[in-house]
Amino acid sequence: MSASESAGTDADAAGWDAVRELPPSAKLVAKTLEYNDTLTQSQLAEETLLPPRTVRYGLNRLEEVGVVESRFSFSDARKRIYTLTIDESR
Rank of each mutant, 00 (worst) to 15 (best):
D87H: 03
R56Y: 09
A18N: 00
V29C: 02
F74K: 10
Y35Q: 11
V55F: 03
P23N: 07
D12S: 01
Y57N: 02
L33Y: 12
R61F: 12
V29Y: 08
E88L: 12
G15H: 04
A11E: 00
T83F: 11
T32E: 06
G58I: 15
V29W: 03
T54C: 03
G66L: 00
G15L: 05
D12P: 06
R80L: 12
F74V: 15
L49C: 13
R80F: 09
R53K: 03
N36R: 04
T38A: 05
A30K: 01
A77V: 13
P24E: 05
M1H: 02
L84G: 09
D17A: 13
Q41V: 01
A11N: 10
R90H: 11
A7M: 13
A18D: 00
V67D: 01
A45P: 01
K27V: 13
V19A: 05
I86F: 04
S2K: 09
L50F: 10
V65Q: 00
A7D: 08
W16N: 04
V67R: 02
R71K: 15
K31Y: 10
P51H: 05
G66D: 07
S70F: 07
W16E: 02
A3G: 00
T85L: 15
E69R: 01
D37N: 14
E88S: 14
L49F: 09
R20K: 12
E5D: 04
P24V: 05
R90E: 06
S2H: 07
T54I: 13
S75H: 15
S42H: 11
E63W: 08
Y35F: 13
S73W: 13
L59Q: 02
A18R: 04
L44F: 08
P52A: 10
R61M: 11
D87S: 01
D12N: 04
R56C: 09
E21D: 12
D76R: 09
D10N: 00
S75T: 15
P52W: 12
L84C: 11
N60R: 12
D76F: 10
T38C: 08
E69K: 05
A3S: 01
I81C: 03
A30Q: 00
A11M: 14
P24F: 10
T40W: 11
L33G: 04
R90P: 06
S70N: 11
L22A: 11
T38M: 09
L39E: 03
L33Q: 01
A26P: 08
S70K: 04
V19G: 06
E63S: 10
A30R: 01
E5I: 05
R90F: 13
T38H: 03
S70G: 01
G58H: 11
T38D: 11
P52L: 07
D10S: 01
F74E: 07
R53A: 09
S75N: 11
T83Q: 14
K79S: 03
K79W: 15
A7C: 10
E5A: 13
R56Q: 08
